[in-house]
């Protein structure tokens, strides 16, 4: 029976460890506690993350979950339902998740592409209602500080890809905003890159440092240590305005004189559409209260994210995010991906 004893010991160790949880926010928010609708289920709220533990989305969700729990006094569990680069979790949330208010999801906007291009009618992002905005992470174009583009601007990089088409190697993630951003630049400027496929932006940045590509698209946090060490620098940001933590890097719109280069990872919270309205409102209030917590904002800032003012101050976040989804749909229609 040693085996059972050991299994129990393990369970106990894990349980004890879980009890010693952290404290981001201190104490509950009295208004939030009062706002809890009568008859709200007593079991924990399950926050689904569709990406594996330890990644950017997971860390974002766990920090949010902790803060929401502290402020509301309602128990929140983060659960990673992974597989199919998010497809499995997205489908579960849209079609199988309970609609009694105990299921919420922390999603990134890649869910829209999944739903519009790959769901094949099996589920739709419109079955999920956005109830709160967390933060954004705009796409940055990186080059090395000792490579062929060490002192070049984004416009010069793209000029080079125009003069010698198909020779400038750029790291991309196939079938995703990395690809779309490059495609957009190519369509607008007549440049032609050699696209080398990678699994993620982070892998592409590693490829850049290893000199296997000349340009890499990725997020700030993925390249930060290499920027700090002076190995890598940003040449352009696919956003409407410059980022506070990348003041010297112009936006692609500045550099290329455009306005359509807007590729940003958006993180937000959804509930299944069929969740009762009062419970939706309660959950939305929880997210909002958490996002006003300075402790949480500081934690997020450490991850190198950006708080988009238009989404932060939006009177109706559901509408504001649906508008972003609509903009993405227009791109798919324009490029013939969607009819």
């Amino acid at each position: 029976m040693k085996f059972i004893n050991k299994a129990l010991a393990l369970g106990a160790a894990l349980g004890l460890a879980a009890l010693a949880g952290p404290a981001l926010a201190q104490g509950t928010n009295a208004e939030l506690v009062k706002a809890k609708p009568a008859g709200f289920p007593t079991q924990p709220i399950e926050m689904t993350v569709v990406y594996p533990a330890g990644g950017g989305a997971d860390l974002t969700a766990r920090l949010l979950g902790k803060t929401m729990e502290q402020l509301s006094g309602s128990r929140i569990l983060v659960n990673n339902r992974t597989g199919g680069a998010g497809m499995v979790g997205h489908a579960w949330l849209a079609t199988q998740a309970p609609t009694d208010g105990t299921a919420i999801g922390m999603l990134v906007n890649l869910v829209w592409g999944d739903s519009m291009l790959r769901a094949q009618g099996r589920w739709s992002h419109t079955d999920l209602e956005p109830i709160g905005y967390l933060n954004s992470d705009p796409m940055v174009w990186f080059v090395t500080t000792d490579g062929p583009f060490k002192d070049k601007t984004a416009a010069q990089v793209i000029q080079a890809a125009k003069e010698k088409p198909g020779t400038i190697r750029v790291a991309t993630v196939p079938g995703s905003m990395w690809d779309y951003n490059i495609e957009q630049v190519e369509a607008q400027t007549g440049a032609k890159f050699l696209r080398v496929p990678f699994q993620s932006g982070g892998a592409g940045v590693v490829g850049l440092i290893g000199n296997n590509v000349d340009v890499a698209l990725g997020f700030y946090a993925e390249a930060k240590p290499h920027m700090d060490s002076g190995k890598v620098r940003g040449v352009g940001v696919a956003a409407g305005e410059r980022l506070a933590h990348l003041k010297d890097v112009p936006t692609l719109n500045e550099a290329l004189n455009g306005k359509e280069y807007l590729w940003t990872l958006l993180r937000f919270v959804v509930v299944p559409k069929a969740t009762p309205a009062d419970r939706k409102a309660y959950l939305a209030a929880m997210v909002k209260a958490a996002m006003q917590d300075q402790g949480l904002r500081d934690e997020y800032a450490k991850l190198g994210v950006y708080f988009d003012p238009t989404l932060e101050k939006a009177a109706n976040i559901t509408e504001a995010l649906n508008k972003e989804a609509e903009r993405e749909r227009e791109f798919y229609v324009k490029t013939g991906r969607l009819k």
Partner: peptide, 23 residues
């Protein structure tokens, strides 16, 4: 223990214990 128990690998255990390290 996790190594001994078939099925439960280091990845699942680390994911479970990750939140503990926040504090």
């Amino acid at each position: 223990m996790i190594g001994v128990l078939p099925g439960i690998g280091p990845l699942a255990a680390l994911a479970l214990l990750l939140p503990v390290t926040f504090s």
